[in-house]
Amino acid sequence: MSESNGEGHRARRRAVRSAGPPVEENATGGVRTVVAKDPAAATETGVADGGTSSVAAEPEVSSASAPVTDDSSVDAAKVSVTKTDAEPDSEATPAEPEGNKRRGVPRVLAAAAAALLVVALVAGAVVSVVATHATHERDQRRAEYVETARQAIVNLTTIRADTAKQDIDRILSLASGEFKTEFDGRVDPFTSIVQQAKVVSSGEIVEAALESDDDRSGRVLVAAKQTLTNAGQAEPQTRYYRFRVTVSRGDSGLSVSNVEFVA
């Protein structure tokens, strides 16, 4: 009887060993608990030596003595890592979208082009104002040269016996340089001749045009007509002259420095 019990006990032990870890007997000798690596051997019950044996499933553990890790802590760590990866730092500066960068470049270029256009317009306006002012000054200077030359020729071709002294003084008021020198020492003799001949002449400008000019002087071509009467002629005579008049700018203003007859 004992041998048969022993054989049955060993057979059951071999069966349990093939399904899982070795059988452990509790201290009482009445109950045996077998922990199986294979989950398929979920529960196995048997009675040996009048006791109860049970087989419980246990996850497979490596034969090496690896530290046991609590599943709950592992899951918490995974959730923490997932949350950290999914939720960016609120203090971090969000990256600018690529589309905004691409749209920003044309805006910058447009702003730069607009600024350059404004600068060009302002510069153009300034240049235009300066050019207009320079043109106005030049035109005014030329007009003054022509007007001075016209007046000098009118004075030179207009003289009367009864106002000879005043007429000569009017000619000298615009004279300078070589033209004025021609009258030096001749004013009195010229006045006497005009008075004795009872000369009456009046001058008229036919045309006048600027030949050349600069800031200091200008040359003006003047065509004039003179109507002359004297004691020896019963009928008035008309004479035409062409002059080249040099007008100079001095400290006292504009004056005629030279008068030449032009054929």
Rank of each mutant, 00 (worst) to 15 (best):
I159Y: 00
S201R: 01
D85L: 15
G20H: 05
S73V: 15
S4E: 09
M1K: 14
T93D: 12
R142T: 10
H9T: 15
T191Q: 03
R249S: 07
K37C: 14
T33M: 14
L121G: 13
A131M: 08
G20A: 09
G29P: 02
V222K: 08
P67G: 04
A209G: 09
A175G: 01
A27D: 10
E235A: 09
E147M: 02
Q151F: 13
P97W: 05
I171Q: 02
A125W: 12
R14M: 14
A175E: 00
A134P: 00
L121V: 14
T181S: 14
Q140L: 11
L254R: 05
R242G: 00
T229N: 10
V220E: 01
A64I: 10
V187Q: 10
S257D: 11
R142F: 07
L228D: 01
A113M: 08
V118G: 05
I193Q: 11
E144L: 05
R107E: 14
R150K: 13
R12K: 14
V247A: 00
V206Y: 03
G51L: 07
T135N: 14
A86W: 06
A42R: 13
V222M: 13
A263H: 07
R150T: 06
D167T: 00
A197K: 05
L156M: 09
A86G: 11
T227C: 03
E7K: 15
T28P: 12
V256I: 10
R138W: 04
F261S: 06
A36P: 04
V259P: 01
D184N: 15
I205F: 04
V262Q: 11
Q226Y: 00
V31N: 00
A86C: 09
E144T: 06
S248E: 14
R219T: 04
K198R: 11
S63Y: 10
G253Q: 02
D89G: 00
K78Y: 11
S2A: 14
N100D: 13
